[in-house]
């Protein structure tokens, strides 16, 4: 399992989707959670950087767990996800500060995501508010943006949650590039106006 955390963590860091000590990963194993250690470096995870604690209750593992453990637990309780990737994808974070949803225009993200909602809270880390709004959004979507903070993605595997994260950041980067280029986007998708309803 550590190897899987290392593989995904390294990719997130190398792609610039998390900063040196940002983001966190977890998987659900029955009533237990394996989650990255608070302050660990996703790009350089080592033995002891993945800690175990309960989905419903605390034990000694909580002393080392990521400070986002609360929202991870809330997501597992509210959704069918078995893995969570929380990252700080810069282009997606930038867009989250300008708009209430991210509608991809590229083909890959259109197929896979359609629409990514942006939710906002006053306190963005470890707050009860985050633990309410993020899981709520993930009941309808596989990835959601918390305004100004980052993405939360769920999957059956870490790799799957990572895929949604990577696809979102690529889509956001393309939107940012298009805005820099200016001009009108030539639509190629039938029914893309409906993506807001996804």
């Amino acid at each position: 399992m550590l190897e899987e955390f290392q593989r995904i963590g390294r990719s997130l860091f190398q792609e610039g989707i998390v900063s040196s000590h940002g983001g966190n990963l977890s998987v659900r194993v029955g009533d237990r959670i394996l989650i990255t250690r608070r302050g660990s470096m996703l790009g350089h995870l080592k033995e002891g950087d993945v800690v175990e604690t309960g989905v419903e209750s605390d034990d000694w593992g909580i002393t080392l767990a990521s400070s986002e453990i609360g929202v991870h637990r809330a997501i597992y309780r509210a959704t069918s996800g078995l893995a969570i990737v929380h990252a700080h994808p810069p282009h997606a974070v930038a867009l989250s500060l300008l708009q209430d949803e991210i509608i991809p225009v590229d083909s890959e993200a259109s197929y896979l995501l359609h629409r990514v909602p942006v939710v906002a809270t006053e306190h963005t880390v470890g707050s009860a508010e985050v633990e309410k709004v993020v899981p709520q959004a993930l009941q309808e979507y596989k990835i959601v943006m918390l305004r100004g903070h980052g993405s939360f993605a769920i999957g059956q595997f870490l790799e799957e949650a990572y895929q949604w994260t990577s696809v979102l950041e690529t889509a956001a980067r393309i939107i940012a590039i298009l805005r820099g280029l200016g001009g009108e986007v030539k639509e190629y998708r039938r029914g893309s106006g409906e993506y807001r309803r996804w």
């Binding site: 659900r28 069918s80 078995l82």
Partner: peptide
């Protein structure tokens, strides 16, 4: 990991 996956 098979048990959790199978249940889903």
């Amino acid at each position: 990991g098979k048990a959790g996956l199978l249940i889903v």
